[in-house]
Design a protein around this nucleic acid. Structure first.
Lengths: 190, 190
DNA sequence: AGACGTTGTCAACGCTGTTGACAACTCGGG
DNA sequence: CCCGAGTTGTCAACAGCGTTGACAACGTCT
């Protein structure tokens, strides 16, 4: 029986990984539009058609290879006191460059509805779901969503606009200033 | 003598405007990648080649037609007290949908260095330059830049992620919560 | 009338994502 | 052993993209 869907069912796991690795690297380096399927295929030592055979489409390839993998459980589960600062520290200090690369690539590719949905789901899962039920006071969920918005803003400044006055500022200053600003949303009681 | 640069020197102002209007509309609707030069040309009732003749390249067309035009002087020049809230109110209330469309289009097109530079320059001009010298206390410029980052975050949430819990929240709540969080950065004295 | 600069079109180039046809290879059953 | 079947991969082609060089249509000035 022939495969109905466009993605090839099984395939060689090795080739699939090779394509995936090349794709992740090139998407991060050149962005969605800048990384052509043919370039990815060449980097993986394979024909461009095969890339599509394995992943269905360029968009599918992007969605499967470029994913936000952040885990902030340790921070979001910790004490509310000082959570804002620890959030910023965790983002800027613990995370590898890859987090920024991924944010940049996904935001720029958010023309695609499916990429946008992934981005929303990731923010929801990483920040809003763990944070909202822990906030005391009114409008807890809205406040959690606004915390997520603030994190977006920090990621924009660092990963997309690449504001040097921010990227070159001391980590301590950023943690203190931006963290306390986030904390204002967390602590709010009214 | 023939024109050296790729952009045609004079040209008919009427056609130029027609192309510009069509471009702005399509870029806002479909984004940079989604709006093809041929589609823009068709909407302007003109050949695709002419679009390039007039604007040099698709990127040049984008830069000339999609520009952030926000003026926040009235807010940034106003009293520091309550400035955070007034900033959020001005963004969400006074600005037309076009501001969000432009933010979305430019951020998604920020693969291009020149688009990125424009975005940085716009944020700098609209917020950092007027705000930084007015802030009292230490690290004034960094704080102004972080205020700009927070604004990016709000624009992301509203214009790109289109978080419905935020877009559908009451203006008063957003102004109060996010505005006070921004105010924390403005008021900081240490 | 004829030369000239301007305004616009047409066909083509090399690139893109994607697909259908086909080759090379592995493997189980007679 | 060998043959058919299934898997893994390539090739050539398609339509659409941004861009360019050659060329047509047109008004204007001498």
């Amino acid at each position: 029986m022939s495969t109905v869907t466009s993605t090839r069912s099984g395939g060689s796991a090795a080739t699939r990984q090779a394509i995936g690795r090349a794709a992740r690297r090139l998407f991060h380096e050149a962005g969605y539009a800048g990384a052509s399927v043919r370039a990815i295929a060449a980097a993986a030592g394979v024909d461009a058609a095969l890339v599509i055979r394995y992943f269905g489409s360029k968009e599918g390839l992007f969605l499967e290879t470029v994913a936000i993998r952040g885990r902030f459980d340790d921070v979001t589960n910790g004490p509310l006191e000082g959570l804002g600062r620890r959030l910023v520290a965790s983002l800027l200090q613990d995370r590898p460059q890859q987090t920024f690369d991924t944010w940049r690539a996904m935001l720029r590719a958010s023309d695609s509805d499916r990429v946008r949905e992934r981005l929303i789901a990731a923010m929801e899962e990483m920040f809003i779901v763990p944070l909202a039920p822990r906030l005391t006071g009114t409008r807890a969920e809205l406040r959690a969503r606004l915390v997520a918005a603030q994190i977006s803003g920090l990621l924009d400044a660092v990963a997309i606009l690449a504001d040097r006055r921010i990227t070159e500022a001391s980590l301590a200053d950023l943690v203190e200033l931006y963290g306390d600003s986030i904390q204002a949303l967390i602590d709010r009681t009214d």
